[in-house]
Amino acid sequence: MSTSETGSSRVKRGLAEMLKGGVIMDVVTPEQARIAEDAGAVAVMALERVPADIRAQGGVARMSDPDLIEAIIAEVSIPVMAKARIGHFVEAQVLQALDVDYIDESEVLSPADYVNHIDKWGFTTPFVCGATNLGEALRRINEGAAMIRSKGEAGTGDVSEATKHIRKITSEINQLKSMTRDEVYVAAKELQAPYDLVLEVAETGKLPVVLFTAGGVATPADAAMMMQLGADGVFVGSGIFKSGNPEQRAAAIVKATTFYDDPKVVAEVSRGLGEAMVGINVGDLPAPHRLAERGW
């Protein structure tokens, strides 16, 4: 009696369950975090530069300054997430020590390890990781990720990669659902994912953790499309604070995410939002600048 456990899988995955149907917004200052919370964000991602600026400025992108992360935690009452570089377990240790609510092991930052991802089981703080397909999602879950986001192509405002990745993941899940047990062994080999997790997805017809989508969402209609394609919620990075009217756009994306299946609401909230972020077509990006290809 009265033994209690922190940092269990149930508790880590549980926070993601509570974020479902919501919008997680990138913020780079406490003022932006306040705007996001007031607009109805379900959580904020604290970082120094939004992906569009990381892309524009180039160079090595790293974990944010602890002062900035703490100032954002102090500003809002909703969960605060922060990014560590892929494989940089010490940045993750620092973020856990700062008491962030979720750690994003993110391809948006420059990878610290081109072979290994962080062993996430040893942490009390839960992790969210990006994935472009089901095999990648299950490899991350096998390493301890408690939430998955489809990657899209961050910092572009071009939703086509987000569409591609969420469609890929859901279609691979649907293929597994229709397989016989003997086919699942081969599927696990082809997905390059652990058999037990592949079998679990085949039996339940869904990922064992919450699946959000990210990377290029810039409008209420983008968010509603991701929800109709099967996402549990959306991350909006550069799309809000790189637009003409962040307060109104943020609130509009929140409403479109809840009423994703009601085009009248999506139409209503899309009126008069001003300029969306300018954007870059993913097709114009040379391969080395495609962030979604980071992750192994």
Partner: peptide
Amino acid sequence: RRNAFGSQNESFETELD
């Protein structure tokens, strides 16, 4: 009181009478 236990690191599971 909202968020009475603190950050996610303080989230927990337990047996309750």
